[in-house]
């Protein structure tokens, strides 16, 4: 196969958010918004594999996800949860990453089915990606082949609890450790891989730009965008963007 980029192993420690820096009003607002957020979740309607067959029962009359405040949503921009239902073929993984980057933070990823954990049934297959958390920050896995609707609902309830406690912050890791995720994506898709979303710029916008955001892999991406003249096109837009920039915190 194509040369290049070695796959990187995950160092699992997540970068903690310092809560102490916030004053008591900010903390109160955070608690309140987390409470609300956990009760109104929109699941992106995108089925990547077999596990999707258990979502219609979970959504409709029998198990009824809506009583937990969870509803399907058809556009990524308005969705909160990206459900990866089962194996992701490499062709799908590209679309999943594009979709994920379009979603607005805070956003959560749930890997349903054993295939997202470690390849599952298709561990030998040349066409499917094996460990989902190497390419996207995953909040929670629901194992099983396939997990029953009850398991899906339990998983979603646990996610709600996590959100309420303010612990479901792995989406921030995508910005903080972009170099790691990008490296693994490049390993699979080749070093010309790029997406329409400028993650580094968004990381600055969200104040999540850190030491691990950039590295060899982002340098490769930047080199590519410079070579293909994508940064120059970007400049006027950035100026416009900075005028309307709103601080997140």
């Amino acid at each position: 196969m194509k040369d290049v980029i070695p796959i990187q192993t995950n160092n699992t420690e997540t970068i903690a958010v310092s809560k102490n820096s916030k004053n008591i009003y900010q903390q109160a607002i955070d608690t309140f918004s987390n409470f609300c957020r956990a009760r109104s979740l929109f699941v992106l309607h995108y089925c990547t594999g077999c596990g999707a067959i258990e979502l219609p029962p979970a959504m409709t009359s029998r198990f009824d996800m809506e009583r937990l405040g969870i509803q399907p949503m058809v556009t990524p921009r308005q969705a909160d949860i990206l459900l990866i239902t089962g194996y992701v073929s490499i062709k799908t993984l590209k679309r999943v990453i594009l979709t994920y980057e379009q979603m607005q933070g805070p956003k959560y990823v749930i890997g349903i089915c054993s295939c997202t954990v470690n390849g599952g049934m298709y561990w030998q297959s040349y066409a499917t990606a094996k460990v989902l958390s190497e390419y996207l920050p995953v909040d929670m896995y629901i194992a099983g082949c396939m997990p029953r609707p009850e398991a899906v609902l339990t998983g979603l309830q646990q996610l709600m609890k996590k959100i309420e406690k303010g612990e479901a912050n792995s989406w921030e890791n995508y910005f903080k450790r972009y170099d790691y995720y990008l490296g693994n994506q490049q390993h699979l898709f080749g070093d010309t891989w790029h997406t329409p979303t400028d993650i580094l710029e968004e990381a600055r916008h969200y104040h999540l730009y850190g030491a691990e955001s950039t590295g060899n892999n982002t340098a490769r991406l930047i080199k590519y965008t410079v070579e293909h003249d994508l940064t120059k096109l970007d400049a006027p837009l950035r100026e416009k963007d900075s005028m309307t920039k709103r601080g997140k915190k």
């Binding site: 194996y87 073929s89 062709k91 799908t92 049934m121 298709y122 030998q124 297959s125 040349y126």
Partner: peptide, 23 residues
């Protein structure tokens, strides 16, 4: 197409007759 491609036909060549029942 190809978004759901898993290479079943290839996988089945690599597994025992009895294992393929699950696949």
């Amino acid at each position: 197409g190809g978004y759901l491609h898993r290479g079943f036909e290839k996988l089945m060549e690599g597994r025992l007759w009895i294992q393929n029942i699950a696949l």
